[in-house]
Amino acid sequence: MAKVQVSKRFMDKSQRVLAYVILSVISIIWLFPFFYLILQSFADIQNPLYNTKSIIPNIWTFNNYKALFTDSRVPFIRWWLNTLIIAFFTALLQTILVLMTSYALSRLRFKGRQGLMKLILILGMFPGFLGMLVIYYILELLGLNTSIYSLILVYTASSAMSYYVAKGFFDTIPKSLDEAVMIDGGTKNTVFWRIIIPLSKPIIIYTILVSFTGPWGDFMFGKYIIQTAQIQPTGYTVAVGLQGLTTMATNELYGAFCAGAVLVSIPITALFFWLQRYYVEGIAGGAVKG
């Protein structure tokens, strides 16, 4: 009797094993840095007996974390609060502005629409920070340059540039919904608030997530604006503060950097995994709509 051709999966068992091996190697490569970070944050680097060669630290200590909260050169809590406030308000304002721009560009038809989209595309091609001198001067004019919260203004001001993903989402909502509301007696304002917003929960969460994690990761703007504003060191954001630690002459604060990095990453990663579904949807759906 001919050999029974059972389902294909049994045949390429060897292929599956190979696939698993590759995947696990990839995971190791991708997880090693964080694993190393956590280990370093417990390593007592200053201790002379410490053997820098080995990956697993031979001396464990907890004072790196203690240094974060006690050492005056590393006012971590202050940094963390600054960044949290900036991130919170940026997320709030930027989401509103991005939603408004992308809704207008995707669903309303008006004269300068194509022109505006082309302008934003072209502006995106210029290197961003060259204009920082001017932005700093404008902040100076507005008298905001001494407070680091002017960063909120800097981040939200250019939020119209990132209308792309949200616009992709709004394009998927059928046009006949707008027309149905028009006939039912609503204005375009009712359409926006009572039909579009309740329907676009995924993209709202995606925008909040992206604009919240923005300030945590931004380094360039923060460094320039804070440096000229001379409110070191308590006025730093987390990113600028930690970067400052690594470029210090002696690397005695390196342990503090690792601890700080771990503490910063935990909340953001937790937030990320909680909203992972929306993030994946946003990227896979919106970005490709191009």
Binding site: S176, L177, A180, V181, M182, I183, D184, I195
Partner: peptide
């Protein structure tokens, strides 16, 4: 359109997905 006192049934029904049938009709 809203002042012309007309009503329209669309090809793809154009119902508001996030509202129940009662709210859809009463909107």
């Amino acid at each position: 359109p809203k002042d012309r006192d007309i009503a329209m049934v669309f090809q793809n029904y154009a119902l508001y997905p996030h509202m129940t049938v009662y709210e859809n009709m009463a909107f």
